[in-house]
Amino acid sequence: MDNRYLALRHIVEYGSFSAAADELRCSQSAVSQMIASLEKELDVTLLNRQRGGCTLTEEGRQLYPLIERYVEDGLRIRERTDEILGLDTGVIRMGTIASISAHWLPGLISGFQQRHPNVRFVLHQGDYTTIQEWIHNGTIDFGFINPAAARDVQTITIKRGAMLAVLPQGHPLAALDRVPLAALAKEPMILLEEGHYSEPLEAFASIGLKPNVRLRIHDDYSIMTMVEAGLGFSILAELILHRTSTNYRIVLRPTDPPVDRTIAIAYADRDRLPLAARRFIEHLRSNIDALP
């Protein structure tokens, strides 16, 4: 693969020539020469070079999707070559969500790297929609989604877990052992933005209700802070609340009817997954009972 395109991707990703040079383990001047050579060959200026960092020009933005696909194909060729040669190397590109990043992946990655120390991980954190977009465009090998949210991807169901109502301390509904969704529907809600599919919204819709969503936020921890401040309630996965809820002045309660979340691994085609990704999925499935 032409390393000039890889250098360009690192510059776009990190916003600077120096960071790209660090990633490629070469000098900044070498990266500058690569980009200058590429721009001369294509007869187009790809980057705006500014004191605050580098951004793509309009021509660069139009070309970049093709360049990114070329880089991904080149990296996969390298990985496939390693597999053919019998080398236990590779890069696992994974799409994940906050609760899994915080509570599943540290132990899973640590255990996997004890057996396969040369495999590297690249994690992209998003939601059910962006993770599937990354699968479709080849940015990631696989990702974690709710199978009910799947669109044109294959899935393997992994685990099912509860979701809990998150309320400010002192809220009248916090005195109940189980909080009716009908009562919550009247309260201001802070919704975790999960893309085109949301387990709490589906739960409300199943009983003919629509909650009063005041805020939509991508980050579970920010939501807990806002609930703590009395801005509303939320419904979050018990997994994300497993060890962090004690850091906030909030109350957790099951709902009536219950809300749950199913997590699956999603990918485009299992037969085309890199060997390292397939091995990691096998490692995850063999350790699923030990996961919270």
Rank of each mutant, 00 (worst) to 15 (best):
A98Q: 15
V91G: 00
G126P: 05
A203G: 13
E228F: 01
P147H: 05
F112G: 04
I109G: 00
K186S: 11
P292G: 04
D271Y: 05
I235S: 05
T139R: 15
A175R: 14
L38I: 07
A276L: 02
L164R: 09
A264I: 02
N118C: 07
S32Q: 14
D220Y: 14
A149Q: 06
S101Q: 15
D2T: 01
D260N: 10
R25Y: 07
D127R: 05
V153N: 06
V44F: 04
D73M: 05
N287G: 05
S245T: 14
R69I: 06
P168F: 04
S206D: 13
Y267G: 04
G86E: 07
L38E: 06
A182R: 15
R4F: 08
R120G: 00
D82F: 00
P274R: 02
E68F: 01
L275N: 03
G208A: 05
E58I: 09
Q154Y: 07
G161V: 06
A174K: 02
N137C: 14
T157I: 12
R285L: 15
A203L: 14
E68A: 13
V227I: 08
I288K: 07
T129V: 00
D269H: 09
G143V: 02
I190N: 12
Q113W: 00
G90R: 00
K186Q: 15
I240C: 10
L236Q: 13
Y197S: 12
L239F: 03
G138V: 11
E228K: 03
L284I: 10
R178N: 07
A174I: 06
A7Q: 11
R76G: 00
I156G: 08
I223R: 03
V259G: 06
Q28V: 15
L201T: 09
G60W: 03
S29M: 13
M94G: 03
V259W: 11
A175G: 08
A266P: 05
L181W: 04
R178I: 15
H10A: 12
D2H: 03
D73I: 11
R178K: 14
A203I: 14
S27D: 11
D43Y: 04
R115D: 08
S32P: 01
R25P: 00
L24D: 01
L108W: 02
D177F: 03
C26E: 14
H283W: 12
I250A: 13
S16M: 10
A229R: 09
L192E: 14
P172F: 12
S110V: 05
I190A: 12
G52N: 12
P211E: 02
R78E: 13
K40S: 15
D271R: 08
I265N: 02
Y64M: 08
R78W: 02
V91M: 09
I240L: 11
G230A: 12
R285W: 03
N212T: 06
S198Q: 04
L284C: 08
R120W: 00
A182N: 14
G52T: 10
G60I: 01
A185M: 12
S29K: 11
L164G: 03
F204T: 09
R272D: 08
V91N: 01
L105E: 04
D22M: 02
H116L: 03
A148W: 07
